[in-house]
Amino acid sequence: MVSVLNTIDTAHEDMVHDAQLDYYGTKLATCSSDRSIKVFDVRNGQQTLISDLTGHEGPVWQLAWAHPMFGSTLASCGYDRKVIIWKETNGTWAKLYEYSNHDSSVNSVAFAPHEFGLLLACGSSDGTISILSSTGDGTWDSKKINNAHSIGCNAVSWAPAVTPNALFDTGNRPPTVKRIVSGGCDNLVKIWREEDGQWIEEQKLEGHSDWVRDVAWAPSIGLPKSIIATCSQDCRVIIWTNDGTSNTWSSKVLQKFNDVVWHVSWSITGNILAVSGGDNKVSLWKESTEGQWVCISDVNKGQGQISEGQRTLQ
């Protein structure tokens, strides 16, 4: 049974491109073609507009929240080639840092796992990926991966910070390797690794036949296994897995959808994948006990079971 508990009216004046919940699910940020970013408090079923951030000069494509140990920090990117980092101090939101070293629209931003510090990856239509890092005293460093994807990079996602075989190891571990997965207009998915302060291409995953729209590295669930989900304009979602010992990634096509697949995202524990496509539908996928990816079937029984005033899911 599925039920809708609340609805939040964002009051954006144009297309909403992204919504992101902060780490704890208490604040919701939305961004839109109307150039604005709105931050809502969504605790206890209520929703209050906290702030309306303006600073972009074009549609804002994507948002990312930093870990709360860095305070309330939000990154945004947009058509105006800018990446802006916003921070809340004493209830007031303000621009903390603006990065405008991309030559084209910035499509994707993602903060690294907090273990690595305040670190942001940005993918742009100029084909590059920038890695911005805060030194802690207000200054920011940037590194660039040039020619990451020809024609453009559409999405970036970080690998979890835990070493994949960390299941029973609770002692102090050496700092793990930083990895990023990216997807682009060259139909490729690439994995990047930081080595001696430089970012090098570790893997090139070929499987999609059209622009890769989104990439999502699954949270580590304790097994020595890495999982990445990617989706594309070719209407396919691919699950890539690496067993943690070899260097090879095997791929499995989740399903051929009827329309472009725009987004893939993992649940907190990495056991369910939400897939949203151009057909105005979100489907949920889970690995079955037999190791197959199946669409979970228990989310559509809500019809008629929701009391008045709430909207029905079918």
């Binding site: 919504a19 919940l21 949203s276 105005n280 539908k281 489907s283 949920l284 029905t312 899911l313």
Partner: peptide
């Protein structure tokens, strides 16, 4: 059966979802 979350009242366009 393939199951979809289909929020009524959302006009055409791409439905997206983020995890809680």
């Amino acid at each position: 059966e393939t199951v979809h979350l289909n929020v009524e009242g959302c006009p055409d366009g791409k439905l997206q979802a983020i995890w809680g």
